[in-house]
Amino acid sequence: MLEAYLITLTGVVLAQAAPGPNLLAVASAGLGQGRKAALMTVMGVSTGMMIWAVAVAFGLAAVLAIYPKLLTAMKIAGGAYLLWLALRALLSARRGGQASIRAHGAALSAGAAWRRGLLVVLTNPKAALMWTAVGTFLFGSGLAAWQVVVFGPLAALSAMAVYGSYAFLFSSGFAGRAYQRFARWIEAAFGLAFGALGGRLLLDGVREMRAP
């Protein structure tokens, strides 16, 4: 069991460290609202990791195999959410003042930051695919459902470590000063990044929905 956990955890950590919606959510919170909001976003992402572990342990992989359109629906929902975040960032960049990513302002409450992290990871179809692969590997290694559930807290702790490091980095004084100086450009960059990810997911979902 420990060997299977270590192998799987290594892959999960590498996936967490790679750029993606989770990292962008943490970075935007760190630059915009400061360390507390960034860390609460990390907590939301970590909570989502445990939810994915439970879902996989109790049949997500089987459900996706029977109902592949469920993944299509997740792509559409996740893409729409990321496009909404992109629109907010691009509009604030255009206005140049009422920023959705405000430099250490009070734009996001702790609960709102936690919900953003949770929604980003739960509506991310890449997370669904990753956790389906995780479940397949762990079950293939002979683990029981409860042992797959137990892997969830390990993935959540690794998320706290990886994304927490990003939270401290992007909420540092240097990052905050850089943001204040280049706020509109940074907002635009986040908007374009979220828009590219969201647009790709939404487009893939629509294409799959129209496919025979």
Rank of each mutant, 00 (worst) to 15 (best):
F151R: 04
V134R: 03
M1Q: 04
G152Y: 02
A161S: 12
T47Q: 03
L85C: 12
I101D: 08
A65K: 11
R210G: 15
V13A: 14
L169D: 11
A62K: 07
F174Y: 01
F58H: 11
A27N: 03
L91H: 01
G44N: 07
S100V: 13
G173F: 00
L202Q: 09
W114Y: 11
G176V: 09
M50A: 13
Y163N: 09
F174H: 06
L24T: 05
T136I: 07
L23S: 14
A196D: 02
F168D: 13
V56T: 15
L9F: 06
H104P: 00
S141N: 13
R35W: 00
L119S: 12
A110Q: 13
Y179W: 03
D204T: 11
F170G: 07
I101R: 04
M1C: 10
Q180D: 15
L39Q: 08
L108M: 14
S109D: 09
L85S: 10
W84V: 15
L138T: 10
P21T: 10
P212S: 10
A77L: 15
G135A: 05
W131G: 14
S172G: 15
P125N: 05
L201Y: 08
A89N: 08
H104S: 14
A93Y: 00
V148G: 06
W84A: 14
A155W: 01
A93Q: 06
I76S: 08
K75F: 02
L82D: 08
A62S: 12
P68G: 11
S141V: 05
A80V: 13
F182Y: 12
L2F: 10
V42F: 01
G34E: 12
K69E: 14
A38P: 05
R181F: 02
L71S: 10
Q147S: 11
K36W: 01
R115T: 14
A17W: 00
P153I: 05
L23Q: 12
T41K: 04
A53L: 03
V26E: 08
L192H: 03
T123P: 09
T47F: 11
L138R: 04
A183V: 10
L39E: 08
V149E: 06
A29D: 05
R210C: 13
V162F: 03
E208S: 15
Y166S: 12
M74N: 09
G205W: 00
L143N: 10
V42C: 11
V54D: 07
Y179R: 12
L143D: 12
G117D: 07
W131F: 15
A193F: 02
L202D: 12
S92K: 04
A25K: 01
L197Y: 02
L9P: 12
R207G: 08
T8S: 13
V54K: 02
S172D: 08
L203V: 13
Y166G: 14
